[in-house]
Amino acid sequence: MLIRQSGDVPASEITPREIYRERRRFMQGMGALAAGALLGSAADAQAGARLTGVRASPYTLNEEKTPYRDVTTYNNFYEFGTGKSDPSENAGSLKTRPWTVAIEGEVGRPGTYDIDTLLKLAPLEERVYRMRCVEGWSMVIPWIGFPLSQLIRRAAPTGNARYVEFVTLDDPGQMPGQRSHVLDWPYVEGLRMDEAMHPLTILAVGLYGEVLPNQNGAPIRLVVPWKYGFKSAKSLVRIRFVEKQPLTTWMRAAPREYGFYSNVNPHVDHPRWSQAKERRIGEFFKRDTLMFNGYGAQVAQLYRGMDLQRYF
């Protein structure tokens, strides 16, 4: 008997991007109607609005925070262009309401969460984290969010869930940078299950006490402070639990330069530049980059016995 390989989906059966996007927009619209009926207007949760009921957390830093202006105007978010100021200039076209995040794959309780449900999933807390970009600069950012582990527990992953894949919105209408093919859209990132469950890993919905500005990954993004910034995927629409290590966007774009782990590591250089030092935005002198971005005490045990030169 001939058994068809699962990879053999004829091109004719793949739903074209335009159609599934249209479908998504329709469902978002329906979600908005329902949410609107229950909660009143969701529009008051737009970027810049104060977030209330945020509690302090022990995860803070004794380092000067990067000014709000720099945090919100110097961004890498290629969905809005490759220049540092492109995101703040172009992200106005992103609509963060209605918004849903699909939880799927190897989980007992798959489902689609409305963003306003996610905001109430767990108490919001402020976390002041270092952020180290793979390009050699860094910031200190007061994020607001909740541990990703809270959402994962709710989704009840099966024994097969060994990795978590994060997918950013794919809609060139709202994200003008996606009209260029500088990267393969949608943006995909991934974590190993224990990394995703780690208490430092959060889903952020705000910064500096406010609803997350669009250019910083609104309405909800990942923040993994011991990894290079690009691991913290923005504007999430899908979180998928999988058995095999996901192929992330940057691994696909340049496999020699970007590995799956991408832990901040001053001893493993980018093939084209050194990672030993970094410039903290706002400072003149470069400073030494810290192993695991200074979070070694909390995360080093995740990688015990691993050759970090190989698994970079």
């Binding site: 202006r69 720099d70 105007t73 540092k84 100021s85 600069w137 410039r279 935005i281």
Partner: peptide, 14 residues
Amino acid sequence: GLGATGGLGANPIE
């Protein structure tokens, strides 16, 4: 001019 008016952005050296 940009330097004198603080217009070099978040990462002036870059």
